[in-house]
């Protein structure tokens, strides 16, 4: 296995193109190294992207959104007060990936490219409408995050293509997001179910919503019907029930060593209600509007 430390994305692409064997890109490495040790993959060329200028930066974009470098770790995101204020759901999803030690290395880009439907950072990014900038032999292009994974361990990235950054749209007013996952233990488990909810309110009513479900389909699932169920409502009990029904219907889980299909369907409904509540309350807290009755 040859180890490379390119100083630019162009060099990285060139090395990958010229490899002739299997290649792996290295950001945090918390998935790649585990697969390396288990003998699941031994790349001929391992291309470490962490020495490319700017990859470790979190930058406010001109339109008020965010540009997150591919070597930005969960720990960094958690310490970035402005990013947390705008996108608490995106950050809390990333921070659930592994232990404190893993947080010191793991990156959302790596989490996305690993292609696991249970990746904790991906539902939040999908619900937020995040996009990724890509560079490859065919030049630069951009995709919505939900367009990247195609199934367990597989993505739409073409051979030699690299994700160069993740961009989050401007947060805008009266908006809030949240991520919840179910695991048997309080930490260190892979999500049995993950749910991200991103809301925009108009007063008490939900003006816009995006809901993404993790670990209940071959990829993270954008549940449009579930979102539609709560648009125009003040997220009252009827709306929450409709939300849960729609989300459970959208879920298409398998049974595996971490949970049965029935259990995942049922938990999807439970978590989507709770996550929606949290997102809704976060908007209220941000905009200072106190709800009359206890929700």
């Amino acid at each position: 296995m040859r180890y490379h430390r390119p100083e630019s994305f162009e060099d990285a692409v060139a090395i990958a193109a010229g490899s002739g064997g299997t290649t792996r890109f290295l950001a945090g490495g918390t998935d790649v190294l585990v697969q390396l040790r288990a003998g699941l993959v031994t790349p001929d060329d391992l291309i470490d992207l962490k020495h490319i200028p700017g990859v470790a930066e979190i930058v406010r974009t001109a339109d008020g959104g965010w540009r997150i470098g591919i070597a930005v770790t969960g720990a960094q995101m958690g310490r970035h007060a402005d990013l947390v204020r705008d996108w608490p759901g995106v950050v809390e999803g990333m921070q659930l990936v592994g232990s404190t030690q893993v947080q010191g290395r793991a990156t959302p880009v790596g989490n996305l490219c690993n292609g696991s439907p249970a990746a904790d950072s991906v539902p939040g990014l999908v619900a937020a409408g995040a996009r990724v900038d890509i560079l490859g032999p065919g030049g630069p292009r951009s995709l919505a995050v939900e367009e990247v994974p195609t199934g367990p361990g597989r993505t739409t990235l073409r051979p030699g293509e690299i994700i160069t950054a993740i961009t989050l749209p401007p947060r805008g007013a009266q908006a809030g997001d949240a991520y919840l996952r179910f695991t048997p233990r309080t930490e260190m488990d892979i999500a049995v179910v993950g749910v991200a909810v991103n809301l925009r309110l108009d007063g008490e009513r939900i003006a816009a919503a995006r809901i993404a479900l993790g670990a209940v389909a071959p990829t993270v699932l954008l549940a449009d019907a579930a979102a539609a169920a709560i648009i125009g409502t003040p997220l009252d009990d009827a709306a929450l029930t409709a939300l849960a029904t729609a989300a459970t219907a959208a879920a298409n889980p398998i049974s595996d060593k971490r949970g049965t299909a029935d259990f995942r369907k049922e938990i999807t409904g439970v978590l989507v209600r709770r996550a929606a509540r949290i997102a809704y309350d976060r908007v209220q807290a941000r905009t200072g509007i106190q709800q009359g009755e206890d929700k």
Partner: peptide, 11 residues
């Protein structure tokens, strides 16, 4: 240890 779930400190 990921899927053989021994109790962790926060459990």
């Amino acid at each position: 240890f990921l899927d053989y779930r021994v109790p962790v400190a926060s459990d």
